[in-house]
Design a protein around this nucleic acid. Structure first.
Length: 427
RNA sequence: GGAGAGGUGGCAGAGUGGUCGAAUGUACCUGACUCGAAAUCAGGCGAUGUCUUACGGCAUCCGAGGGUUCGAAUCCCUCCCUCUCCGCCA
């Protein structure tokens, strides 16, 4: 959520920034709501002040046993206007909040302006794609050839966009998440978190999935209680740890890492990546989350992105880093780097991690604050990034480490997690 | 699933219709004392919103939402959460 003060005092600048991401702010609606709010709120508060002081007088008169009927008549005269104003003001504030809640974050100045994916800018490239002296297969042919990846069984059990892993490939999947967690906790200073996979609507609102993106979520209705939602990323439960909290200076930065399955409905994305495990309803991810003081967030964003890159480097997987252009960024983000891993089966770089700085956008929605040097409360900045998406990392390993006979060499860094196995072959 | 108890400021904890945004303790900040620290003493110290150039004023907030009342932390209703005991369970 954007700062309403900023909208009041500097709406032109906000408009301009939002314009770069193709979002047109409805200034007229905002100003109409704001004008009404201002008169109504000041009037309501004046009436409340009168009522309060009259009520106080009544109390004093009555305690002395004197006649309070004059003051009571005066309050009664205020009452109908006050009641009407309070109701209308409540509605208006809700309207205003709903309006602001659907405005996306403003991009940082350093974000390239653009309309779509095509305008994202490559920042760096690491590693050279391997040259093969045999025809490369994609991960589906490789996994099914090994007899360890079974989409038809998954379809029977659950439906399209699920996958089933067996044997060494299932172990490799587990090894990857263990490896990632160990690197981030051991080398990068993150604290491991285990969190709920089902969350309430308030949490989804806090990180920005609600109210706008309900269609992308799996919703779990309940007979006698509010519905819960399956998390689309660990970002939701982990970032919401600080919702409605005031953190002490020395608690920051908070660096948390969490491995969870992620569930995405993504009804609109059918037709794209229908083959294989690139786009699934369920996938595992190791998520990095940082909560930092406002002035530290850009620095933290670079650091966190490096932490994700380190995993790719340790696995010796070629990748590139792109900075998303204004038009391709997520709703809540002020700046996002995507890491794209090389997939020989697709002859292309494909997204494997997304690292974003949300600045105070999420913190404002969830009232996550810290005390500054003057002991005053101040919104924190939140960041997160995949470190990494486990399923896609598995895909990358299959395709990059394939051999002519269809077997897969295990990257050296993962061998300790595979009981020393160096190669996966058909059973 | 059954029975009971409870949710008040950073923490602990009083307050059962009116000078209560809330005693007291503790934590924290400032000052005095001290070479310094501790102890002691004095003062300060909630959040959010709103109006104001500012000083500051006003409003709202005692788990959440409704209700009664001139007036609600306090009374009534609904919901959420926590704890204790019993049952069940990986």
């Amino acid at each position: 959520m954007l700062d309403i003060q900023l909208l009041r005092t500097n709406i032109d600048a906000v408009c301009q920034r939002l314009g770069t991401r193709g979002y047109t702010l409805d200034v007229a609606t905002f100003q109409k709501l704001e004008a009404e709010r201002k008169t109504l709120q000041t009037r309501t508060q004046d009436l409340q002040a009168s009522r309060n002081s009259l009520s106080k007088q009544i109390g004093q008169l009555k305690s002395k046993g004197e006649d309070a009927s004059a003051a009571m008549a005066e309050v009664a005269a205020l009452k109908s206007e006050l009641d009407a104003n309070e109701v209308r003001l409540g509605e208006l504030l809700k309207e205003m909040e709903a309006f602001i809640a659907t405005i996306p974050n403003t991009p940082q100045e350093s974000v390239p302006v653009g309309k779509s994916e095509a305008d994202n800018a490559e920042v760096k490239k690491w590693g050279a794609p391997r040259t093969f002296d045999f025809p490369v297969k994609d991960h589906v042919d490789l996994g099914e050839g090994l007899g360890q990846l079974d989409f038809s069984a998954a379809a029977k059990i659950a439906g399209a966009r699920f996958s089933l892993l067996k044997g060494p490939l299932a172990r490799l999947h587990r090894a990857l998440s263990q490896f990632m967690l160990d690197v981030h906790t051991g080398d990068h200073g993150y604290t491991e978190v285990y969190a709920p996979y089902l969350v309430n609507a308030e949490s989804m609102y806090g990180t920005g999935q609600l109210p706008k993106f309900e269609a992308d979520l799996f919703k779990v209705p309940r007979e006698d209680a509010d519905p819960l939602y399956l998390i689309p990323t660990a970002e939701v439960p982990v970032t919401n740890i600080v919702r409605d909290e005031i953190l002490a200076q020395d608690e920051l930065p908070l660096k948390l890492v969490c491995h969870t399955p992620c569930f995405r409905s993504e009804a609109g994305s059918y037709g794209k990546d229908t083959r294989g495990m690139i786009r699934q309803h369920q996938f595992d991810k190791v998520e990095l989350v940082q909560v930092v003081a406002a002035e530290k967030s850009n620095e933290a964003h670079e650091e966190l992105t490096r932490h994700a890159e380190t995993i790719l480097e340790k696995l010796d997987l070629p990748y590139r880093r792109v900075v998303l252009c204004t038009g391709d960024m997520g709703f809540s983000s002020a700046k996002t780097y995507d890491l794209e891993v090389w997939l020989p089966g697709q002859n292309a770089y494909r997204e494997i991690s997304s690292c974003s700085n949300f600045e105070s956008f999420q913190a404002r929605r969830m009232q996550a604050r810290c005390r500054n040097e003057k002991n005053k409360t101040e919104l924190v900045h939140t960041l997160n990034g995949s470190g990494l998406a486990v399923g896609r990392t598995l895909v990358a390993i299959l395709e990059n480490y394939q051999n002519a006979d269809g077997s897969i060499t295990i990257p050296v860094a993962l061998r300790p997690y595979m009981g020393g196995t160096e190669k996966i072959s058909a059973a």
